[in-house]
Write a protein that binds this DNA or RNA. Sequence first.
DNA 1: AGTTCGATCGCCT
DNA 2: GGCGATCGAACTG
Length: 191
Amino acid sequence: MRAALKRSFYLRPTIEVARELLGKIVIHGSTSGRIVETEAYLGTGDLAAHAAAGITNRNRVIFGPPGHAYVYFIYGMYECLNIVAEPEGEAGCVLIRALEPVDGIAAMRKRRPTANRDEDLANGPGKLTRALGITLRDNGCDVTRGPVVVCAPDKEDTFEIGISLRIGITKSADLPLRFFVKGSRFVSRHR
DNA sequence: AGTTCGATCGCCT
DNA sequence: GGCGATCGAACTG
């Protein structure tokens, strides 16, 4: 059994958490994957962030204590997973954009029959929630406890971090807040 | 390989 | 009523 990252890991500036989450493991049930791509979404001033307009019923988890999952529904059919950073009362979260499958690859294939190659199972925010079976029911979940858990890898590895603009947004689109494991074939876009 | 477009629905104005 | 932190299929060249 892997040990979950402590809450203090998330009690930091969002950008720092976004970078540090690379290489960590997301677990849900029998499936897990290594985080290879993240995006930081800040509070006030970041017009692309759901938190930009203040607290609403949908986004209130972002303003809560760090180390919780913010899961939202988008485009009528996809769920996206974020991990909340910053102290309680302040907004900031990290969108998990791509995973390198680790455990339960057979189960992931079953949930994502359109993926032909392993690198297509979880190389996008909507794909990885589907692959791991993460849904709106996991919104607000404490990722230091579960059912969605984030852990350190069994074996620390080193890699270079790539930085780029965030993907798929129109507002505040000029900020370099996307981080990825350089050279990984499991990222959603190769630059 | 790159671009366009339809699916599908909760959220917020 | 319009739009979106997407995906995959159908186009084009």
